[in-house]
Design a protein around this nucleic acid. Sequence first.
DNA 1: AGCAACCTTTACGTTAACGTAAACTTCCTA
DNA 2: TAGGAAGTTTACGTTAACGTAAAGGTTGCT
Lengths: 132, 132
Amino acid sequence: MTSKTSPTKYSISDLSKEFDITTRSIRFYEDQGLLSPSRKGQTRIYNQRDKVRLKLILRGKRLGFSLAETGRLFELYDVDKTSAKQLNSIMELINNKKSDLTQQLDDINAVLIELNDLEDNCQETLRTLESK
Amino acid sequence: MTSKTSPTKYSISDLSKEFDITTRSIRFYEDQGLLSPSRKGQTRIYNQRDKVRLKLILRGKRLGFSLAETGRLFELYDVDKTSAKQLNSIMELINNKKSDLTQQLDDINAVLIELNDLEDNCQETLRTLESK
DNA sequence: AGCAACCTTTACGTTAACGTAAACTTCCTA
DNA sequence: TAGGAAGTTTACGTTAACGTAAAGGTTGCT
């Protein structure tokens, strides 16, 4: 199997260009504990895992997650290393997030409907203006 | 027709209790031009329209809208009073919002799937822990 | 050697959306 | 009539998520 893998090493500016964010942001995410690139000397080296994380961070942002919340979610992926006692509180957190998101789904659908109405409204107004 | 209408006058604390926010927030929204209750003397009196607006503000927040953005959306409802020239820019704004929200829908569905996976994961880990 | 393009750390500045406190008025009631 | 509850304005404080310098190291031309 000759699996063509994408380059697994990125500089900070590689990522900043690819995701269209500043290097300042990327370093800040590291500062907040969401990324931990390796180093070559002083210089940060990002791998595929870092890149995926960055993508998840940005998606979280689009959903209104704070960086801290996204950090929590990252931790959840290490469930194996967690005690049974904590598992229940983790699942509670998951369920909270799920109901948040379900609420958001409803919200979005409602707003989309309204926006479509508004658009129709605009178009009709345009037509009546043109026919004068 | 005896239409039973809900009381159409609210105090600031009525609304703060109903929506579980502080009066500070409500006054702040007014300060930002999103609400404009009438006054009896000094005291703010809110009507049904104000209440609806407040609900919309909070829904906007859940969707990650800034107060300014929500304000823009409020203005959109006065389309009638707008010139044909502005209508196109309004529709552009609407379409931007629509694509934002569509993106969010995708994001949410993705995260919901992941959260469900995580939950399964947790439950399985719990089971294996219990069977030891 | 020089300098341009990167990278780094450190640190102060900025914006949105309130929190919090002070000082005051108005109304109700024990 | 004294107090308490709810309202008001004014204004400074706070947090998250960066922006924006400043000052300096490292690499690679030319």
